[in-house]
């Protein structure tokens, strides 16, 4: 039993956390660049190189594996599955399918119209729209790599709960009338739609294409994110950070959430920032609130959604997500002794 635990720990450290890479980069920084990793500049260079390479390696491997799984669940199929469901079960399934259905915010409009015109309740569509950017399989493994498994699993669970509750509230409030009326005039071909069957080779090719297209899309965010992370890590005084975002500041979660909302970044870009903040003693709830706010409340996707729903529904949606994130942040801070 002990051997099992130890070997899992070793695998976790070497494969997921990539301690070997950290050691390798330390060697490079110290011997190659002649910098001390115990000093500021050396530590920043080490953080930057190690984090960038680690995130790119993890990202490529994870996107490949996950895209392969996702190729079995195109949104067209998701819509067919959800079409036969009602009530809370539909919201839960919508949130779950959101985690595995490939979806980028650029297709949120056809998706929204496609779901709604097929007769899906908008609450179910919103459950899907909340969970899709918030919780995906890749982010879970990255969280486990950067923090630990408890935090990763807790993140998924609360993310899904937020999606289910948010969608259910929107269902209960009967907000269908705040969807732009033209959406209902479009008749979708949702039922009986035949999707092409894919061979394993095609799925593998799809996975490879996804890796390339996602990396092409997010590499800059990652470099910027790691840069900010490195700056926080080595150059911004700890007492300044803890004064603004520390546990003793009652508004820390609120500040982190509001700061994250206008930002548009992939969850991968926010991870290095989160990592550096946690290292500086910022509460885990505050950090998770920041990450959720960046991914779920992004301004560009709000602007897109504005094309299909009226302002009132958009404001309700944003408020529900905002309040949910705040609650999650404060609860996680209060329970953080269980997680770190």
């Amino acid at each position: 039993m002990n051997i099992l635990v130890e070997s899992f720990g070793w695998l976790n450290d070497q494969v997921l956390k990539m301690n070997w890479l950290s050691d390798l980069i330390r060697l490079l920084v110290e011997k190659g660049f002649g910098l001390e990793t115990t000093e500021r500049i050396g530590a920043s260079v080490h953080f930057y190189l190690y984090d960038t390479i680690k995130i790119f390696i993890l990202l490529s491997v994870l996107i490949f594996a996950i895209s392969y799984i996702q190729s079995f669940f195109p949104p067209e199929r998701t819509r067919q599955i959800l079409g036969h469901m009602t009530g809370l079960r539909a919201n839960i399934l919508g949130a779950l399918l959101g985690t595995i259905t490939p979806f980028c915010s650029c297709s949120s409009i056809p998706l929204f119209i496609g779901f709604t015109s097929a007769g899906l309740p908008i609450g179910v569509t919103f459950s899907f729209l909340i969970s899709s950017p918030l919780v995906d399989l890749a982010s879970v493994l990255l969280l486990a790599s950067i923090f630990n498994w408890k935090i990763a699993i807790a993140y998924v669970v609360v993310g899904l709960i937020l999606a289910v509750i948010g969608g259910s509230i929107i269902s209960k409030l009967k907000l269908e009338k705040y969807v732009e009326s033209y959406v209902y005039q479009i008749k979708g071909a949702g039922e009986g739609l035949e999707m092409p069957e894919q061979s394993t080779r095609e799925r593998l090719r799809f996975a490879r294409e996804q890796v390339l297209s996602i990396i092409r899309k997010v590499w800059l965010y990652i470099l910027i994110g790691v840069g900010i992370g490195a700056a926080i890590h080595g150059w911004i005084p700890e007492n300044l950070i803890s004064a603004v975002l520390g546990q003793q500041n009652a508004f820390s979660v609120l500040i982190a959430t509001l700061a994250g909302a206008p930002m548009y970044a992939d969850i991968f870009g926010t991870l290095p920032i989160a990592e550096a903040l946690v290292a500086k003693g910022v509460g885990i709830g505050t950090v998770l609130a920041f990450m959720m706010s960046v991914t779920a409340l992004s301004l560009p996707s709000m602007i897109l959604l504005k094309k299909v729903v009226k302002t009132r529904l958009l404001v309700i949606f944003a408020s529900i997500v905002l309040v949910g994130i705040l609650i999650i942040g404060y609860v996680f801070n209060a329970l953080s002794y269980l997680l770190v």
Binding site: F103, L111, Y182, K187, G190, P196
Partner: peptide
């Protein structure tokens, strides 16, 4: 947009040949 939705495709770009969906989202 209306014509796109009418095809049933949710992820663009999509390719249809003789009314049958052949590929989506790539």
């Amino acid at each position: 947009m209306q014509d796109i939705i009418a095809t049933g495709i949710l992820q663009t770009p999509g390719l249809m040949i003789n009314g049958k969906i052949k590929s989506t989202g790539r």
